[in-house]
Design a binder for these strands. Structure first.
Length: 596
RNA sequence: GGUCCUGUAGCUCAACUGGAUAGAGCAGCGGCCUUCUAAGCCGCAGGUUGUGGGUUCGAGCCCCGCCGGGAUCACCA
């Protein structure tokens, strides 16, 4: 049995035997003993003093004596202040290592047909411009959280809601019609999403010129903004779109399809994917119908001008508009429709929205609205809210050209990776194709790790100039350790060493025990990551594990060890470490190269 | 103004959810490659955890006040 559980049960029994108090083992906590003290696991006895009515030291000693007598695996203990440090038999840790070594699925729980089904929405781009750094954090978090949920025995449906309709895409369409000269991705060689994005920027420029011109002629700012021909043109296109105007719809479809093929390239490069894609052009009508049903059933109010509102003041929120006076729907309405469709399509146990914290209020409102509309799952939706990515000079602003483009960023990372690799010259014997594959893995590992290692809730800073480090607490450092282990295992295989059998006559060194214990906490890390929706937990664990391994690696030789049993044991230790690294990194969407 | 988030070394981030002397990396300084990958290892230096109270055997973490940063409160998405 798991030693942690044995100790908690033991402490519970000790409290009963010594002080006649009953405490559920679940309410007793153990922690790994800090390295500067002797022992493996530590129980803090301060909470028990009210039972024992004795000093912390004496209480800890009494419980320690009890545990040593009652539990075979506990071979000793020491007491420092109120901390009971328990020494576990080294044989136990050998057993633990071997069990983990032989479990190819170590740390993960497989899902079954009965497992909860979690739908994770992430990415959710607009179709008027390419993906940027902010989207990257979103995509990486969404993908990683999906993997983490899967590893905890959930079925996961990754979904993407594409905002393919609205005034923004009409702006790009307007500018393209006006000055596009029939430019296409094919005849220009430009990536589709970038091409459409360029026209969006063009529209903005044109619009500003027009507004400035009109203001010079004496119009107020508001008048000028409303009367700028470009804006009028875009609005007109939106109305035509809603009217199913053939020409507008065809252009819309054409330009969106360019964007989609561009997005596909970026998604593929990032290594993210989706099981089901929804389009707002297909869900917004469902939302509109829901809003109208709400009016009929007296849940919402229709104002004199025809607009539809939800009054949420009794829920501590404000008034929220659901349909404009012209009957068109807003973002919130679309989200209601999308949610309804999803629950029709899937037997969802939990809905997760990976969306930035700027929309906290939106999801609070969405949850209440769905609840009012009678959907019992409304209250249960979970907004996985994450912080913004900032640049050294503040936020990204498209108008100021400070947006970090996703494609450029990835390409830049690959360049750095290539340059670093070439300088080190460890891959000279490989083909170009093999090398490029390794550069790509390292570059993406660096980028993903860099972004995922910070607590999702927090705003994070990204400095493109300094680029991303490849030393220290970084993705490449973790990957490097993995590659290093693979190198050892390759050499062991080449010399026909066999190390899969269990070894018994080994007394592990302190550093080896620390490594085994670190490995053994992996399953707990996987569940913590899911409970907290935090890939950062996994990344930080990777770093600790790898640091521990490198210390071991430096201190002890594996293949030159003369004692066969010890060599086998160390190979098992190394291989298990590599397995855990690969598993942990896979939760972050990072692939480990076999050499680097 | 209301609501929510946030403040830890020069910089970027941790701290097992209230436990031992707050830890890493980068940047700086100094060591370690005829030995399994030096993208590594070891050492030095760097802190009144924004601030003042409170709760507790114990607070970076919980509560209250203040100060600084951010988000949001649209017939935008």
């Amino acid at each position: 049995m798991n030693i942690d559980l044995q100790i908690r049960n033991g402490v519970s029994a000790a409290l009963k035997a010594l002080y006649s108090e009953v405490l559920n083992p679940d309410n007793i906590q153990t922690q790994l003993t800090r390295k500067e003290f002797d022992g493996d696991l530590t129980v803090v006895v301060f909470p028990f003093l009210r039972f024992s009515k004795k000093s912390p030291e004496q209480t800890a000693s009494e419980i320690g004596d009890y545990l040593v007598n009652e539990i075979d695996l506990i071979v000793g203990f020491n007491v420092v202040k109120g901390f009971l440090n328990i020494v576990v038999s080294p044989n136990y840790w050998l057993e633990v290592l071997y069990a983990n070594f032989t479990d190819s699925n170590f740390g993960f729980t497989k899902s079954t047909d009965d497992s909860p089904l979690v739908m994770v929405e992430y990415s959710s781009p607009n179709t008027n411009k390419p993906l940027h750094l902010g989207h990257i954090r979103n995509n990486l978090l969404g993908y990683s959280v999906s993997e983490i949920l899967k590893a905890n025995g959930n079925r996961v449906v990754k979904t993407n809601i594409v905002n393919d309709r609205g005034i923004h895409i009409c702006k790009s369409m307007y500018a393209w019609l006006k000055s596009g000269k029939n430019e296409t991705p094919e005849n220009s060689g430009k990536k589709g999403d970038h091409l459409v994005g360029e026209y969006y920027v063009q529209f903005d420029k044109l619009y500003k010129q027009e507004v400035a011109g009109l203001m010079e002629k004496g119009m107020s700012k508001e008048e000028a903004e409303a009367n700028a021909p470009s804006m009028k043109g875009a609005r007109e296109m939106l109305l035509k779109w809603e009217d199913n105007d053939t020409e507008v719809r065809e252009l819309w479809q054409k330009m969106n399809s360019w964007v989609y093929s561009g997005f596909d390239v970026t998604y593929k490069k990032l290594g993210v994917d989706f099981d089901k894609i929804y389009y707002e052009s297909e869900t917004y009508t469902v939302g509109r119908d829901e809003a109208l049903r709400g009016v009929e059933e007296g849940i919402f109010e229709k104002h004199d001008d025809g607009s539809v509102w939800a009054n949420l003041e009794n829920d501590g929120l404000d008034q929220k508009i659901l349909l404009r006076s012209d009957g068109t729907s807003v973002y919130m309405t679309q989200d209601i429709g999308t949610a309804k469709l999803r629950y029709n399509d899937y037997d969802i146990s939990k809905m997760v929205y990976v969306v930035g914290n700027e929309q906290n209020y939106h999801f609070q409102v969405l949850s209440v609205l769905l609840d009012k509309l009678g959907y019992e799952w409304g209250k249960g939706l979970f907004h996985f809210s994450y912080g913004m990515v900032e640049l050294p000079h503040g936020k990204m602003k498209s108008r100021e050209g400070t947006v970090v483009d996703a494609d450029d960023l990835v390409e830049g990372m690959i360049e750095v990776s290539k340059k670093t690799s070439e300088e080190l010259g460890k891959l000279d014997e490989y083909s170009e194709q093999e090398k490029n594959e390794i550069y790509r893995k390292i570059a993406l590992g660096a980028l993903k790790y860099f972004i995922l290692k910070v607590d999702p809730k927090k705003t994070m800073l990204f400095n493109p100039e300094e680029s991303i480090d490849f030393n220290g607490n970084t993705g490449p450092f973790v990957l490097y350790t993995y590659a290093r282990i693979q190198s050892i295992l390759r050499k062991a295989r080449e010399t026909n060493i066999e190390w899969s059998d269990k070894v018994n006559n080994v007394k592990p060194e302190a550093k080896e025990l620390e490594l085994i214990k670190k490995i053994n906490t992996f399953p707990e890390v996987v569940s913590d990551a899911a409970n907290n929706f935090s890939p950062a937990v996994v990344a930080n664990y990777c770093y600790d594990l790898v640091k521990e391994f490198n210390q071991f690696y430096h201190e002890f030789s594996i293949l030159k060890e003369e004692n066969d049993d010890i060599m086998k044991f160390r190979l098992q230790l190394a291989q298990t470490t590599a397995l855990v690294i690969a598993h942990a990194m896979s939760l972050l969407g990072i692939e480990c190269p076999e050499r680097m």
